[in-house]
Design a protein around this nucleic acid. Structure first.
Lengths: 344, 344
DNA sequence: ATGGGTGTTCAAAGCGCTTTGGGAATGAGT
DNA sequence: ACTCATTCCCAAAGCGCTTTGAACACCCAT
């Protein structure tokens, strides 16, 4: 129905397309009087420049891509994703960008970037879930696409923009906190350690134990999908061992909820019998008890990360010659009701 | 870097752009020999048609929009969203469509649709989270944009495409199941009843009680954000009443997890002391205990809904004259470990 | 030889915008 | 009176594709 174009709009105004276009895009060489007239007419007819045509003419699509990998086993999208894009999306909207999403599984991921680049349908892209030896920065540099990595890749030689939290330090501190409470048998329930963030968390965990002369027990360390079920089954299993842990260091509040359920199953009290410290992404739908936190946790808002990644990417797109931006955020350790002195 | 266009590709081949274009788009009027040559060259140079230019020429952008509303209070994206788009995204990818996302809050939602339509950046749109008196179908019909509603709007006169689950019936059955177990004091923890799905669930709940001559107790019915916290605090409060409920009918497994935590707090055993039945969206990251379900639940996969909505929408886009498609799915009631006979 | 298919290719127009390279009008400077 | 900037506006080219209408070659039947 609707859909007036520049041509007819300018005809209605008795002006050339050039003038109307310039007025609408804020160029100076048009008198204020006519600009006002034009703006008003554009509003009246609900005119908006055809995105495809504009992209063709300018070479900029005003569109940013997110390629989100699908876990092949569970066809699962990382549940933090909703919050991330809600942060990023807000920034995009205010800057006049659109967000395009590609959910792809495994091997097809590479192609997704190639495709988006070759079709020229985006100006830049956010890289989610970087892994060890992640090939994407190299690919994107080669494709000439602007990008920002949410997280880090350990092994890329080139300079690239990223925003990460200090995962190693977070887990170092969380683990030390447990050690200070007298816990010596500590379990780690982690995400897949193929992901950079999880590898760093494990390193922090082990570093803390090492510094107290404790060697990490492999039977108390598990990596996997960060679900409630993982927390539950792992905790059940570990607590049934000969020398069960008195504390759990876990990578998400979802896992922590599973651990709590296992404790309930076994009639154990959280904090008194077994302590739990988690990493909390401050997801909007998992508020970890507003006023007094349920779980002791290292916290860092995924939504804030989404916002900041978007800002950085836009800045990179609009100024590609500038130096890459890198930020490393510290997570905050908040004491909740899930930790206490180790039972004696 | 990369980025060859039709012109240079056809020059390399010594053919006209017409022929190359036709070959690539599968038109018959080009000999198999040349088509093969062209396909090969296209592959070699990694040629892909510029999306904007193609859209301009054809009038079809091969892009589908999802406008997802942001809860203003919590800046929260519905956590089922990840699964929905992972289902839809897969269908899009296979059909050659891209997905564009707009996360917008409250009053700006209307504008988002207007914008996308006026800029001609999408061919169609999925309507999420329909509410009572939802104005969007009327708006979209007026804008001439193809769409399909995930859920239903109660009050729209026009014919429109939707995919919904039978929420009323689900909650009717779940409630009857509880009644059959001897529970007479039943609580309902629901999503915001401004949403169509939640209103229907409540209707089903009340209908079941009515049919047994029980009148629903307003102090046992709550609507709100479907979080763990809601389940926890509501259950705590309701169980502290004079005449506490022996069963909870709740709208998500997230809420159910909160109820379970409240029971643990109070030293009550789930199923023996208090029963819980939930609606389960079968989210990939909340698998409700793979083999034996933790919660008794009415189940319907959100991912499957995403897939189907996408299929319907594509069909509508490619064949706009066809009649609207409407589907109503029945949820499946699966018995888990969270329900038992009412204590006597 | 002539005409009509049939199969294969092409030149050029058009999609809706931005942007280059002027042109006309006005006012100021000499 | 004449030049020279300024200010404001415009015609036309170009972005990379699809698609219309026509051309060309070839073959078979008349």
């Amino acid at each position: 129905m609707s859909g007036i174009n520049l041509k007819s709009l300018s005809e209605k105004l008795g002006l050339s397309q050039t003038t109307v276009s310039r007025a609408l895009n804020g160029y100076p060489e048009v008198s204020e009087r006519t600009r006002k007239r034009i703006l008003q007419a554009a509003d009246e007819y609900n005119y908006r420049a055809n995105a495809g045509a504009k992209g063709l003419a300018t070479g900029r699509t005003m569109r940013i891509g997110h390629v989100i990998p699908l876990n092949d086993d569970h066809q699962m999208v990382n549940p933090v994703f909703g919050d991330f894009i809600s942060g990023a999306g807000d920034v995009y909207a205010n800057a006049g960008y659109e967000m395009v999403l590609s959910v792809v599984s495994g091997e097809k991921e590479h192609d997704a970037y190639r495709d988006l680049a070759a079709k020229r349908s985006i100006d830049g892209v956010i890289v989610h879930g970087p892994r060890k030896n992640d090939p994407r920065p190299a690919l994107l540099d080669q494709l000439g696409l602007s990008y920002v990595v949410h997280g880090r890749v350990d092994d890329y030689d080139g300079a690239y923009s990223y925003l990460d939290i200090n995962n190693r330090r977070s887990f170092l501190r969380a683990t030390e906190f447990m050690l200070d409470l007298g816990h010596t048998r500590l379990a780690l329930l982690n995400g897949w350690e193929d992901f950079d963030f999880a590898a760093r968390r494990r390193a922090g965990f082990e570093e803390a134990l090492d510094s107290r002369g404790i060697t990490a027990d492999p039977s108390l360390m598990l990596e996997g999908e960060m679900t409630e079920t993982l927390g539950h089954s792992a905790a059940r299993r570990m607590l049934a061992q000969n020398n069960p842990p008195t504390g759990f260091v876990v990578s998400s509040t979802m896992i922590a909820m599973g651990v709590r359920r296992a404790l309930d199953d076994l009639g154990l009290a959280i904090s008194r019998d077994v302590s739990v410290v988690a990493h909390d992404d401050v997801l909007s739908y998992l508020d970890n008890g507003n006023a007094l936190p349920v779980f002791t946790a290292t916290r860092s808002s995924i939504r804030a990360a989404g916002r900041r990644c978007a800002e950085i990417l836009i800045q990179r797109i609009e100024n590609p010659k500038s130096d890459p931006v890198t930020e490393l955020w510290e997570a905050e350790l908040t004491i909740g009701q899930s930790t206490g002195r180790a039972p004696t």
